[in-house]
Design a protein around this nucleic acid. Structure first.
Lengths: 228, 228
DNA sequence: TCAGCCTAATATGTCGACAATTTATGTATT
DNA sequence: AATACATAAATTGTCGACATATTAGGCTGA
């Protein structure tokens, strides 16, 4: 469904060099290949990727807009450093935004979309039964579920904010802090309650349950980080 | 308080050319000097402002990140076209985000900040008494109030999202649609209720009242636009 | 007259080079 | 030896030019 590389262009080759660079660098930063807090040297990176500094600078500009790097005039760009405080900030924003997304999804998702989401959730349930402990599939499942809710809001601006901007920052935290989730069963249940509210077309309840879900996810992360 | 041109740099001249260009273009777009939907010609704009296309392109990239222009590869950039639907989307996002900001402000604002906000609100009250109908001051007052609440959340990411990204888009709508507010008295009252909740350090109530405030502001805009 | 193609003109994408600023290096002075 | 200053090296900011893609205009043929 969300394959086909982001664009419905007629000519698939028309993707610009800056675009590819941006994707590559974003992945490298999110996955920690370029360490958090490290300086980004324009001459070096340009040489490594075989592109001119001009194209590279445009890519860095986009990374800056997504808060993946910070730039200071005449000094240069650095990969952001992750902090506990900023992670909390992100969770607060997610709570507000995804809560609204759930509210809107309860109003705007088509019946078919809801059915497909029920099917997806059943698959997650089976995966949890069969292979308990497969953290990867659980995380991926969690992301899939949230992704569909956000799409279901039909609010394009909101979708962009969540899926383009916040999503990658969050992924970066998962990689860096090794945020494995040990509460897949509970998360699965919470997804179920939320979906029930959407089936019932109850926006108020959907928002409430989504916010509770994200709050409990945040508490889980807090506990995990305090363990070290 | 928010003067001094965004930066606490040691050297005020160190602001880059791209920065100035960005500010200039953003203002021109927001105030309608460059019409919505119009094409942005790189050679023409570069010549007008006496800069190279490279610097201009970096500025355009930032405008794109703020959703003020839309870009298509090999085609060019256009100023966004405003629509009723998108305005509704923005109000939904504001409701979620500013609601959260109010919640956090009730927890995190200092006593002094709250006192200053009370003083500000009293001034607004007097202005409404004295010169009723001065739509400009009322709008400015509304912005000031919301601005301080957002700052009071102490969530830097949230502050950036609201004050850097959404704010200018909203201003653009105000200019384009001529959104004068005819409910200054009611807005003033709603601000008062909200402030009371913050004084009482009641996050739940603060969020609720902020969301109601934004919803009623949205309804007002809807009514106004339907009149044509 | 209109549709379709071919060519010219213009616009965007990318590059390498120069200018200005910051950082590193080395020297001198106390 | 440590600090301060001066100089050199490297990095970022800005520019003009070339490569490539799109648009405009004219020509041909039905």
């Amino acid at each position: 469904m969300q394959n086909q590389s982001t664009s419905n262009n007629t000519d698939p080759v028309s993707i610009t060099l800056t675009d590819r660079l941006f994707d590559t660098l974003q992945r490298a930063i999110v996955e920690g290949e370029i360490a958090p807090g490290s300086k980004i040297s324009e001459p070096e990176l340009a040489r490594q990727h075989g592109v001119s500094r001009g194209s590279l600078r445009e890519a860095i500009g986009r990374l800056e807009a997504r808060k993946l790097v910070e730039r200071k005039p005449n000094i240069g760009a650095r990969v952001v450093t992750l902090s506990y405080e900023q992670l909390i900030e992100i969770f607060q924003i997610r709570e507000a935004l995804e809560g609204m997304a759930a509210r809107l999804a309860a109003q705007n998702m088509s019946d078919q979309e809801i059915e497909e989401l029920q099917v997806l959730l059943e698959e997650h349930g089976q995966q949890i039964e069969e292979q308990q402990g497969q953290a990867y599939f659980q995380k991926q499942g969690d992301l899939d579920f949230h992704y569909r809710i956000v799409q279901g809001s039909k609010n394009h601006h909101l979708i962009g904010l969540l899926c383009d901007d916040l999503y990658h920052l969050l992924r970066m935290y998962r990689y860096q802090f090794g945020m494995r989730s040990r509460r897949s069963r509970q998360a699965y249940d919470e997804h179920h309650y939320l979906l029930n509210a959407i089936v019932a077309r109850d926006p108020e309840m959907a928002e409430l349950l989504m916010r509770q879900h994200i709050r409990s996810s945040r508490r889980n992360v807090e506990r995990m980080l305090l363990e070290n």
